[in-house]
Amino acid sequence: MSYHIIGDQDTVLGYRFAGVTGDVVETEEEARAAFRAALADRSLMILLLTEAVEDMLGAEVTAHRMAAIPPYVTIVQDIWGPRGNRRSLQELIGEAVGVKIARNDGDEA
């Protein structure tokens, strides 16, 4: 058991088909409890969180990311579609580097 997902019922159902164990959470307290339990589980390597859950947990997720220990967190979209206004990885890099590199990738040009 290396993958684990915390999210709403329907999103979790999908990942069950790939053999990912999951916690179904509805409220912030449930999410927090599930997240902490997942962090304590040594057998987990990759922890998937839905966007909704990430929003519920907030700074706790960031704090765990900085710790650089497993499980490594990845955010997945809810099955109901994106929640919008998310900072993508590319933006994170751009912000840290402090320069925007304009490049023609062909498909974006």
Partner: peptide
């Protein structure tokens, strides 16, 4: 993605 994501967060910080 999980691998890249943690790498990016750590490097950015």
């Amino acid at each position: 993605l999980a691998e890249l994501e943690s790498a990016v967060w750590l490097l950015a910080r």
